[in-house]
Amino acid sequence: MSTETLKPDEAFYQDCAKPAGCKTVELLIEPRDKDLGGFSVRRVLPTRQRRMVGPWIFFDHMGPADFAAGDGINVRPHPHINLATVTYLFEGEILHRDSLGSLQPIRPGDVNLMVAGSGITHSERERPEVTETAHRLNGLQLWLALPEADEETDPAFHHYPSADIPAVDVDGVPIRVIMGSAYGVTSPVKTFADTLYVEAHLHPGQKITVPGADERAIYIAEGELSTGDAQIPEHAMAVLSDKPDIELTATRESRIAIVGGENLGKRYVEWNFVSSRRERIEQAKKDWKARTFPKVIGDEREFIPLPE
C-alpha cells in the first residue's frame, strides 16, 4: 500500500506503553484505525518508540473491510526503493501489477514478495470479477528493509502459492512458516537477512512457544493472548524481550503473526521509500517527481503524486 504522507510513522499515532513489571514484553503498540477511503488500515510499524523489529520496518493490517459491489481496493501506481514488500491475505484478493511486467492475483495463503531494490513501481487493485459483487478484504502487508549490500539489487517479483508455504501442527496449533525457519521447517520464500514470519491460529487455552530470533514481536490480527504478566489485546503488537522460550496462551480464539529477525541498523523512511542513506531517498523523490521511474506495465495512465 502507498502511504498518504512523506513520513508514514508520523501520520499514524499509535498508543505505546511498556507493561509494568512484565519481563517478556518490552513495548505494547496499539495502533489506531486510519481511513484510506473506503477501508481501514492499522499501521503498527514504524512508531516513534520503535522503528523496526528485526528487518521489518513497516507493518499494516488491511481491514477487515467489506466492500459493496463496484467498490474495492484501488491503489494507483507508486514507487519503492531499497526494500521488499510482503503481502499475505486472510480473506479476499488483490491484483498486483508492476514495472517488471508482473500481473498476479494474490489470494488467501499466498505470499507476494516484491523486491524494490534500486527502484520499482507497482499498483494494487482488484479484478472486475471481484468488484462486481460484494466482497471482503483482510490481510497484512509488511515491508522488509534490505541489508545495505542488497539495497540497490535488481528489482524482482516472487509469488508463492499457498500450497508451497510449509504448515505444521504443534500441540494442536496449526502454524504456517511464511518466511525463515521455525518449528522444524523452512519456508521457500526468499530472504536477504535472518528473517522470521509465522502465522498461527489458536483456540482458547492453547499455547505456543515463540521461536528464537534476535528481535521478535507478536501481532494479534484477531483474538487476545497472554504472556507472562501481560495481556495482548486484539489489533495490538507486543515487542518481546530476549527472554528465551516465551510462551503465548490464547484467552480467546486468536489469529496471530510472529515477526522478527536480525537488526539491520538505522533506516530512513519517507513516503514509500526506505534506505540507509537519506540522500538516496532525496534522489528517489526527485526521480518520482521527474517521472523517470519505470511505469507499471498495463497500468501506465495513473500514478500517485509525491506528497508535498
Rank of each mutant, 00 (worst) to 15 (best):
D60A: 04
Q14Y: 04
R48N: 12
V189R: 03
G101W: 10
I220Q: 07
S187D: 02
A134R: 13
A116V: 05
W271L: 04
E151S: 05
I120M: 04
P174M: 02
M1W: 10
E262V: 13
I94W: 03
G21E: 03
L100N: 08
F39G: 00
C16Q: 08
I29C: 03
T133K: 15
E93K: 09
I281G: 07
G261A: 03
A238D: 02
D150C: 15
A284R: 09
G117F: 09
C22L: 01
E300T: 10
V25P: 10
M52F: 13
F90H: 11
P128L: 03
I218N: 06
R48H: 14
P204E: 05
K7P: 00
Q231P: 02
S118Y: 08
L248Q: 09
K289H: 11
E247F: 04
S275C: 07
E129Y: 06
V185P: 04
F90D: 07
A68K: 15
T292D: 07
E91V: 12
I281P: 07
Q141T: 11
G298D: 03
G180P: 00
G228T: 10
M62T: 13
E234T: 14
A84C: 06
A69K: 11
K285A: 07
A68C: 07
H235E: 15
F90Y: 10
K23G: 13
V75D: 12
Q206I: 03
K207M: 09
E234V: 12
D229P: 08
F90P: 04
R278Q: 12
I178Y: 00
G119C: 03
E4F: 13
L137C: 07
D229Q: 13
P155R: 10
P46M: 06
P31Y: 09
L83K: 12
I120H: 11
I304R: 11
A134M: 02
H135C: 06
A65Y: 08
Y88E: 03
L89G: 10
S123Y: 12
D245G: 13
P211Y: 10
I246T: 13
Y160A: 10
V185S: 05
G54Q: 00
I73Q: 05
I175P: 02
I281E: 00
R32T: 10
Q14P: 09
M62C: 05
R291M: 07
Q49K: 15
N272W: 11
R277L: 09
N272F: 13
H61K: 15
A250R: 05
A217F: 00
D164F: 09
S40A: 12
N138L: 11
D66P: 06
G119E: 02
M114F: 04
I246W: 06
F12H: 15
T195R: 00
D287H: 12
I29E: 01
R280W: 09
E10K: 14
E302G: 06
R125P: 08
P108C: 03
G223F: 00
T209F: 06
A250Y: 00
A68D: 14
T251C: 01
M62V: 15
H61E: 15
L196P: 00
E129G: 04
A156Y: 12
Q14C: 14
D150K: 15
D35C: 08
T133S: 14
L240W: 05
R176Y: 05
Q231Y: 02
D287F: 07
Q14D: 08
G228D: 02
T121W: 09
L144P: 13
P79C: 03
N138F: 14
A213P: 01
I218Y: 00
W56Y: 06
E151K: 14
Y197M: 14
L248A: 06
L95A: 06
I281D: 01
W271E: 02
T24F: 03
L95M: 12
